[in-house]
Design a protein around this nucleic acid. Structure first.
Lengths: 77, 77
DNA sequence: ATAATTGCGGCCTAAAAAGACCGCAGTTGA
DNA sequence: TCAACTGCGGTCTTTTTAGGCCGCAATTAT
């Protein structure tokens, strides 16, 4: 039941998160510490491998110093 | 482990979704049909009772004719 | 050289979302 | 009056996230 377009959107979101993290020169473990999410999970998020929840979005946004809204600015299908 | 602030944020998001739905004069069942999400689930979302995933956010945004980013414009904690 | 860091994937358990269906009380309208 | 609609909550199963820990190959210092 996992739609094909969803996979693409998850990848887009993940790629954007990765760009933001790298722009701040943070390692997975550093970001992990900042938002209290396991580094291996963040890795999976950046790869678009998991469909994160609303609250996880908020956690990441906060740690990345960006508004949740901004985090979803990337154009999705 | 459910944070207290998360509950509030979920309620804010739900309330906003409800406002948008009502602004478009859609019943739960009508919106349900438009985004392919069960009406009882939408009811729970609007009540802030469930922590929806990224893809569910995209589905709702599309059905409500709003960008995902816009859907998260409400100020969260 | 070698020690530390990094990204990443695997594995596990518990909790929760997804998805679907049912039924009811209250409202709305014919 | 009564039929249809509406919001909403409950229940059940399947799938997935959350959350945590471990270890490795590759890169990056020291």
């Amino acid at each position: 039941m996992i739609r094909q377009s969803d996979k693409g959107n998850l990848k887009k979101l993940g790629a954007y998160i990765k760009r933001l993290r790298e722009a701040k020169n943070l390692s997975l473990r550093e970001l992990s510490y900042a938002c209290d999410i396991d580094n291996s999970k963040i890795s999976k998020i950046e790869k678009g491998q998991i469909n994160i929840t609303f609250t996880t979005i908020l956690q990441l946004a906060k740690a990345l110093d960006i508004s949740p809204s901004e985090l979803l600015m990337t154009g999705f299908d």
